[in-house]
Design a protein around this nucleic acid. Structure first.
Lengths: 202, 202
DNA sequence: GGGCTGACATATATTGAAATCTGTCAGTCC
DNA sequence: GGACTGACAGATTTCAATATATGTCAGCCC
């Protein structure tokens, strides 16, 4: 008897199948075939095809989250940290789009289906931005009265450079110039930003 | 004999047909039928269906351009002007998306086909932003060493609130809060922004 | 017993033939 | 003579059939 069929093995095989065929063509039967089992076995570990796809994407995103954590430099200024972090994320997404288009397309499908995965991804990354900003507020490099909300604003303002809907523009030769301009503007804003009061504000 | 068939009459009929059927279903034959002529006549005025669609969209966008011009208030501060202008544009696009979904969808199609129309639209509106920023620099309310590039950065940073790819999010109840946060951050940035040197900079 | 199989019902995707649409143009009619 | 028509060729879309995929489950095998 071969090794027991684990969820992890299924995820690895699914990622491989997605890489090869893309989200439109990959089937559960393909995954089972790659593992040498019947497709019924796959359903013992994942209730639906959608759940399987989401689990693979989540694993992929988690790896990105870990990588992004490692970009932060405690000795750098908050502005430098934020710029480097945003640049790294942009490069990462751009490379992913060109070098593993099928996995990227899978993520794109999940975004358009508005499942909870992209929400989870955004929440995590905005959390990292919030930590960078928070450190900047600590050293009085940045000014803000609502770190979380400002972090979300930084995320939204740089949307073009991480939202998959804009991936087609990432090949444009001027995109790096546009990125630099937006990031500079945002960082300048962080040096002296006060949020307008939201409904129910203190 | 009826009135001579003019380009303007064809555009009006096409807009009506697009409103009714949307870009996916509207045909040149429908337009001709609405005008009581054969579809061959339409081709006497517009070389292709795409050209016709673009002409209608251009007319629609031009009306928006004119309306946006009228939002500017010479007595207000540059910051207030910019905020009001961005808010007006956002409201306009949002209303267009819900109240004339088929025309909005037509614009969306042109954007995804990357014809020159959206480029023209963006160039015009970024020009208006540049004028607001320029006035702000004049009064020393804003600081920037490249008005045009900064205007483009403001446009890019607020992308979420005017790019049709994000239209689905415009119904979200928190979207106004997100808008306010981004605009505040951008305006704060304009008060003390210096662009990084681009290649070939002075 | 518990993980696996494989046949099954239902849902989704593919296919190819028929219908419709786009774009052209010789000819009509004022 | 010049704006319009309507028949036409080729491209595209539609629709119904057929095929493939998803998800279930009774039964098999270690």
């Amino acid at each position: 008897m071969a090794e027991a069929l684990t969820g992890e093995a299924i995820l690895a095989a699914t990622e491989e199948v997605l890489r090869r065929y893309g989200p439109a063509k990959a089937t559960v039967v393909d995954v089972a075939k790659a593992l040498g089992v019947s497709h019924g076995s796959v359903y013992r570990h994942f209730p639906t095809k959608a759940a399987l796809r989401e689990a693979v994407t989540r694993r992929w995103l988690d790896a990105i989250h870990v990588e992004m954590e490692s970009v932060l430099d405690e000795n750098a200024s908050a502005a430098d940290n934020l710029r480097a972090w945003l640049q790294h994320l942009f490069d990462k997404k751009r490379r992913s789009h060109t070098e593993e288009p099928e996995l990227f397309a899978t993520f794109r499908v999940l975004v358009s289906e508005s499942c909870t995965i992209p929400e989870y991804h955004i929440e995590h990354l905005v959390g990292q931005v919030a930590r960078i900003i928070s450190a900047g507020v600590e050293t009085q490099e940045f000014v803000t009265d609502d770190v979380r909300r400002t972090a979300q604003a930084v995320w939204d303002a740089t949307d073009m450079f991480h939202h998959p809907a804009h991936a087609a523009e990432w090949g444009n030769p001027h995109i790096q110039t546009a990125f630099d301009a937006v990031v500079s503007l945002v960082i300048a804003g962080l040096r002296y930003n006060r949020m307008p009061s939201a409904a129910g504000d203190a």
